[in-house]
Design a protein around this nucleic acid. Structure first.
Lengths: 213, 213
DNA sequence: GGCTAACTTTACCTCCGTCGTAAGTTTACG
DNA sequence: CGTAAACTTACGACGGAGGTAAAGTTAGCC
């Protein structure tokens, strides 16, 4: 039976490894939300998880990795939406639809984190800087895909600018969701509000990028 | 004996302060370019300048402040270009012209740093992250100005998006100049190339933002 | 049951950023 | 004009993040 899932493979070692990682991550997020990201030390996390400090930094090289999960998924989301777009669909239409879908699903990757989580990020300069870097990575991946589909040179200014503009709209809407979450609005209301705002935001790009790719 | 010293205005203290700051900054940039930002320690800078470590961190709270100067000027550049625009000139036209002027003048604020300086930034994750933060600040200041001139609510999505899109074009072109500088192109050639590319980049926003503000 | 390889642990180190402390200068007041 | 208070600056020391090296321990494979 060919199982598609990368099954545990009977690996007791793999299982414990994953358990340990999850254990550390759970304690970390709990302590971060309770006491703040900057105020919580790695030593405290290690003590709470009953492991050595080195084990924590082994699984999570940087402290930010303990708080921000699914980084690669986030960075690849826009590029994936373009490569998986429908035949004949423009890049802008695909990215517009991808955001609408993410909002409808209240996807955490689109910014629908809990209020406490949003507070943790907003209160930490380290995490906000890390988030900026993720938006930047996401834009670079999108530019790579756009260069592929348009058969343009990697340094082409139109590709770079188009990727940046498209990524920027997603970034602005991401922060909008975060802001509303911080203000205490319920997710349903945020989804309703942002869906309408997203239309206006993407419309600013529509005349310039409608027939791109 | 000199009884009164009204004119000097206690200049001895101010003078020594400024001298010490410049002394530290000079040694820092020299060591950073010679050995890289991450590899150079504050202790080495302090030793070179013949002061205590604490004195360095007193003048420059963060290590990045030793390398990146004129941060506030950079962050305010776009907002200033808008507030100082000609009567009847659109925001987009003002920012397009501001970039053209900066390129013509080969302004360091637009990205025209020396090759060694660009290398120092590109090789340092800390400095690139700091630069991202400066672009972000610049965008926020621009959004503030746009909210003022359009009499819109601060959280208005059109204002946020317009500021982000306009800031993004400047950011892409900034990185373009940096990339060309890293590749060893002379400033004159870069200015010529980027001036043409900037026209194409801003044209993507023209249909959507031509009549904004 | 023994061997190999890995993961965890321990200990140590460097460096950044921040805290109290001492010394100097400017200013205010007698 | 002199003295003392108040401010600012330079100094040494501490805490935490991140990395390295060596030893102990456990899973996986004969």
């Amino acid at each position: 039976m060919a199982t598609q899932t990368p099954a545990p493979a009977a690996g007791l070692r793999e299982t414990k490894k994953h358990e340990t990682r999850q254990l550390i991550s759970d304690h970390a997020t709990r302590l971060f939300i309770a006491g703040g990201f900057e105020q919580t030390t790695i030593a405290e996390i290690a003590a709470a998880a009953r492991v050595a400090k080195k084990t924590v930094t082994n699984y999570f090289p940087r402290k930010e990795d303990l708080a921000l999960d699914h980084q690669e998924e986030f960075a690849a989301s826009l590029a994936r939406a373009v490569t998986a777009r429908r035949p004949g669909e423009s890049v802008l239409a695909a990215l517009r639809r991808a955001f609408a879908d993410a909002v409808a699903a209240q996807d955490p990757v689109a910014g629908f984190s809990g209020q406490e989580f949003a507070r943790m990020i907003a209160d930490s300069p380290t995490l906000t800087a890390c988030l900026r870097g993720l938006h930047d990575q996401r834009e670079h991946h999108l530019a790579q895909v756009l260069a592929d589909v348009t058969a343009a040179e990697p340094g082409d200014i139109t590709v770079q600018t188009a990727a940046a503009l498209l990524g920027t709209v997603h970034r602005v809407l991401f922060h909008r969701i975060q802001t509303l979450t911080l203000a205490g609005h319920p997710n349903d209301q945020i989804a309703h509000t942002v869906a309408a705002e997203a239309a206006r935001a993407f419309d600013l790009l529509e005349p310039g990028l409608a027939d791109y790719a």
